[in-house]
Design a protein around this nucleic acid. Structure first.
Ligand code: MN
Ligand code: MN
Ligand code: MN
Ligand code: MN
Lengths: 227, 227
DNA sequence: TAATAAAATTAGGTTAACCTAACTATTAAA
DNA sequence: TTTAATAGTTAGGTTAACCTAATTTTATTA
């Protein structure tokens, strides 16, 4: 029996592990992520360990087992399919879809997910550029890096964002920067690493390093000097 | 704070009260409906009374207050809108929609409901012919009676079903009887009240009184002798 | 390295939502 | 009208999911 709470804990472990692959997933991390307190997490981890969905010890932190990863990836799949559906079919903006998908991802009907996935044309990526796992939990390949790693003169295309907050996404929308838009890095300020960008619709966009770190891009020129 | 459990209790009171208007809604009725035990219901009723959503005493049973009825009707509204959406937009059959809508009705997003209600064209009735309350909780008028009350020779149109089980709906589908289909009552068996019917696509359909009680119709001839 | 801060853990407690068993009040049958 | 069945209620208990406060580890840092 997987309750929506259990689904959320497994998804949290998955997302924290992916967010920073070098770090272990600690009870405190999970607690902050889910907005509960560490003892609550410890308690739940013990149950998930018993059920065979995670392993846990202080040094390696929490790790998903194969079964646990399957479940987590299925929730991620549902989440991203719903986001895409809300965006494409129901005309929600990319800053609105996440919150509603947080609820919809727990609806238990494979047939419903299959149906809406068909309606949106079986895409590989969601409105934030995140890959949609297939039914077997395999993620489509995508080669992306933060815009902040660009060098001057780089031409690149926006393939995603690593932050999904409404305020950040609305900020990008204001700058008229969206998924698949092409960017040119005009200048990089050596003092604070802020960027001057231009797009097809807008020139001389000023952007902080903080924001540029959250935008995921790919170089357009095959032999671009960007790292 | 309305949890989905609370929503389900209020909806249960609403539906039981409407199912049989002459009877009071007893704790046992609610318990059977929600598949829990009577003490669980008593406990929850006490909370709902304190919150001002219902009144309860042994003699009048459970009754929704105005606030409680508002909440219940809103859940019913969401349920029926989702059923219609699943049916019309996502091509589910009328026997499949109820179960998924039982989950979807608890998704908390007015904007989402508004959006899908728009997509399906703001209809007044769901795929089972049930009226969709408007935002103020007002139900569109519909004048229907059980097919079992028909007299011989009556021509009527199917406007709904009072049972929503998959097995019953699939049975009707097999008989090729659906919403808005026209029926002619060819004969009524005086012994067991079973009917012989014909439709545009099928003749001499035999139907038990039990089934006929669950089909809601309206006479087509303005001065029909049916009661 | 000793002191301090932070993280992990344990202990003990609350609330919601369930349950069974036992008892009381109603209703229906004999 | 007594008896038996059913419905309502109370008492007491469980589990999941949360909490705070206290304690023990583990890291930092002075
Ligand atoms: Mn999201
Ligand atoms: Mn996304
Ligand atoms: Mn229904
Ligand atoms: Mn319906």
């Amino acid at each position: 029996m997987k309750t929506y709470r259990e689904e959320n804990y497994l998804k949290a472990v998955y997302q924290l592990a992916n967010h920073d692959k070098s770090k272990t997933v600690s009870p405190t991390d999970i607690a902050n992520w889910l907005e509960v307190k560490p003892p609550t997490v410890l308690e739940k981890l013990a149950i998930l360990v018993k059920k065979g969905y995670v392993t846990y010890n202080k040094f390696d932190g929490a790790k998903l087992t194969l079964t646990g990863k399957d479940i987590a990836l299925n929730i991620v799949r549902r989440h991203r399919i719903w986001e895409t559906y809300l965006y494409k079919e129901l005309k929600f903006s990319w800053s609105e879809v996440h919150e509603i998908a947080e609820q919809l991802e727990h609806i238990n009907s494979d047939k419903l997910i299959d149906r809406i996935y068909d309606v949106i044309g079986n895409p590989d990526f969601d409105p934030h550029g995140d890959p949609i796992p297939n039914k077997q939990g395999k993620l489509p390949k995508s080669d992306r890096r933060p815009l902040s790693q660009s060098i001057k003169g780089c031409k690149c295309v926006v393939l995603g964002v690593s932050e999904h907050s409404e305020v950040f996404l609305n900020y990008l929308t204001e700058l008229k920067i969206g998924l698949n838009d092409k960017l040119i890095v005009e200048q990089i300020n050596a003092y604070d690493d802020s960027l001057k960008l231009s797009t097809k619709t807008k020139e001389h966009i000023l952007m902080s390093a903080k924001a540029a770190q959250q935008i995921l891009v790919q170089c357009i020129k095959p032999n671009c000097a960007c790292k």
